[in-house]
Amino acid sequence: MVWNELAGMIVIGIGVAFDFLGCLGLLRLPDVYNRLQAGTKCVTFGTCGILLGVFLMQGFTPTGIKALVGIPFVLLTSPVGAHALAKGAHIFGVKLTDKTVVDHYAEDRGNKLTL
């Protein structure tokens, strides 16, 4: 069975590429919230890709099934951690970048943001 190893290699390659792009976004984008956007989305997708690739290469062995069970766990925990960090950063008082168009959250919380 060569083809499932090939498919696994390709899926892991896609995952690693998106991990790399996410980390590049972490360096390039201007403020905390945009960095969280790039970081959370790309790195979550990349990690899911790696786990799926491990499943494809191992098949229905204990290792493969554990990798498959890991995917919903990553999909559930990673966004929740990101919400918590974004909310904490906003309460902590990190300003949004200069390009920002609108901020309803600060208006509703009713205090001026000061760094």
């Binding site: 991990d19 905390v32 969280l36 970081g39 790195v43 990690t47 890991g70 960090l85 902590f92």
Partner: peptide
């Protein structure tokens, strides 16, 4: 800022899983 560093550490945790 401090949240920037925390975001980096959080993302490193997810990378470590991979």
């Amino acid at each position: 800022s401090i949240p920037d560093r925390m975001v980096a550490i959080d993302i490193m945790g997810t990378l470590a899983v991979g």
